[in-house]
């Protein structure tokens, strides 16, 4: 392709061909989907289903505290926290979502090669808080104490000034 040119392609709309006609938001169908989604949301108990993730987080934190090479363990923590951020937001644990977002903001603030400068105590504080929220099934908005703890972590991580 010549420099300075670009190719524009209009692919066949297979989805439209399959579905046929005009597809638009149908309120009745949306209500049905929302109700079905709520059943799943009410059924999932994150305090149980996240136990393997919490165990893996603790293992990574322990390794870091014992002086292991941090980058790989911090990568594990980042991936799990990313998962928990989404799960917490979706399944009724906003505190879990906020703690996970705070942790990853902190980990993401260092370039990959500089992750070793992260403070292990900050990482441990986030994981401890997460474990406490889930162990005590602190679902939903949990008042001043929960907000204060998470707000403290967000200040430490730099997520909120």
């Amino acid at each position: 392709m010549a420099k300075g040119t670009y190719e524009v392609i209009t692919p066949p709309n297979k989805l439209k061909d399959l579905v046929g006609g005009v597809t638009q938001i149908n309120d009745d169908l949306l209500a049905k989907a929302e109700a079905a989604a709520q059943v799943v949301i009410d059924t999932v108990d994150l305090s149980e289903t996240t136990k393997p993730q919490i165990a893996a987080l603790q293992q990574a934190v322990d390794a870091i505290l014992q002086g292991a090479e941090r980058a790989e363990h911090e990568k594990v923590i980042f991936a799990i926290m990313h998962d928990l951020r989404g799960e917490g937001a979706n399944f009724g644990y906003p505190l879990v979502a906020r703690i996970a977002a705070s942790m990853n903001h902190y980990l993401d603030s260092a370039a990959p090669g500089e992750r070793a400068r992260n403070d292990p105590d900050v990482i441990r504080a986030h994981v401890d808080a997460l474990r406490g929220v889930l162990a005590n099934k602190l679902k939903g908005e949990t008042g001043a104490i929960g907000a204060q703890i998470v707000g403290g972590l967000e200040s430490i991580s730099g997520l909120k000034g």
């Binding site: 190719e7 209009t10 692919p11 989805l15 597809t23 638009q24 938001i25 949306l30």
Partner: peptide
């Protein structure tokens, strides 16, 4: 459900051209 439904309708009804 609303967000996913909207994206679904969008990819069906408003597909974008491809560019290279």
């Amino acid at each position: 459900a609303r967000a996913l439904y909207r994206r679904l309708v969008s990819v069906i009804e408003h597909p974008r051209q491809f560019v290279r």
